[in-house]
């Protein structure tokens, strides 16, 4: 366990370099985007004078190096700057949106993991049966259907036709059901395919035969001896999916009017609100690194052969 602690500290220290690189990249990428933020903010009818005043106000007339220095020293002090649109601190803007995104990602990941692993195990145990083929077909649909399309279909059925669930927003507790289901569809499909493949490999191993020779009933063989071994690669997929859901829920958030961070990011890019975009990207990067560290620790828990 001491090795694991040292590994975590090392990973976190190394990640500082990663974050530094990310900050430079996103800073430069925003600057090469076509379109002048000052002009976008000032509006179509603004005079040249107004635009240049705004530009000065935002510090955009200074050299890139000076601008970056201002940005990075702010970051180190926990200050991500101010939104050009709302004039509120970027940290506040992000903090308001994070809970909605986080809860959506967590619920979708939980759905995806539970349903995906269960479906994958059943498909592996009953391989080449009708059930296996049915699960494969549904999973194929889940992987290939665009989320906005699936989202609209679900809204049409459950909100409009049946009226069981709210169509959009986040006001009611049940509001999360449709966006989370939509978001979980792809993960569920992916996780079930991964689980099936991994289970099939594990179920052919010698130690499965040993467990059977001991007189273990099928459930014990499949869950205790099979799934624990098969889960190791599945864990990787689940964590990657969770990371993707944290950042990639833009379409789902848009379809369902979900006030998450994905929409804030897209809106901010459209408005050339540099400070907000930079802030969100940095937060994403930090979250991904944290997630990887957590998964590294989980590997140790699941697989005793892994030690750092």
């Amino acid at each position: 366990m001491r090795g694991t602690a040292a590994h975590i500290v090392r990973t976190l220290l190394l990640s500082l370099i990663t974050l530094f690189g990310v900050s430079i990249l996103i800073f430069l990428m925003l600057r090469v985007l076509p379109g002048d933020p000052a002009r976008v903010l000032a509006g179509l009818n603004a005079s040249e004078e107004q635009v240049s005043r705004l530009r000065e106000q935002l510090g955009l007339d200074e050299s890139l190096l000076t601008q970056y220095w201002g940005f990075i020293t702010g970051v180190l002090q926990g200050d991500l700057g101010e939104s050009a649109r709302t004039s509120r601190p970027v940290t506040a803007e992000i903090a308001v949106r994070i809970p909605a995104t986080l809860i959506l990602a967590v619920v979708a990941t939980v759905i995806g993991s539970v349903v995906g692993v269960a479906a994958g195990v059943i498909a592996a145990v009953r391989r080449n049966s009708f059930v296996d083929h049915a699960i494969s077909s549904v999973a194929m649909m889940g992987v290939s259907m665009p989320v906005y399309w699936l989202g609209l279909l679900l809204i049409l059925l459950f909100a409009v036709t049946l009226g069981w669930l709210p169509a959009a927003g986040s006001a009611e507790p049940l509001s999360i059901v449709l966006p989370a289901t939509t978001l979980a569809a792809f993960s569920t499909a992916l996780i079930s395919r991964m689980t099936r493949a991994s289970m099939l490999e594990v179920l052919g191993q010698d130690y499965i035969r040993t467990a059977e020779a001991k007189g273990a009933p099928p459930r014990t063989v499949i869950i205790k001896h099979g799934l624990r071994n098969a889960f190791i690669p599945v864990l990787t997929v689940i964590s990657l999916q969770f990371g993707a859901l944290l950042g990639g829920a833009v379409l789902t958030e848009t379809v369902f009017g979900w006030p998450g961070i994905g929409r804030l990011l897209v809106d901010s890019i459209a408005a050339r609100d540099f400070a907000v975009v930079q802030g969100i990207v940095l937060v994403y990067a930090a979250a991904f690194i944290l997630l990887n560290v957590i998964v590294d620790v989980l590997y140790v828990v699941v697989d005793p052969r892994i030690r750092y």
Binding site: Q205, D206, Y207, R209, T210, A211, V302, D303, P304, R305
Partner: peptide
Amino acid sequence: FQDPMTSLNPVLT
């Protein structure tokens, strides 16, 4: 069984 290297479950003591 023949091969003790593969006949024991790696994740259980």
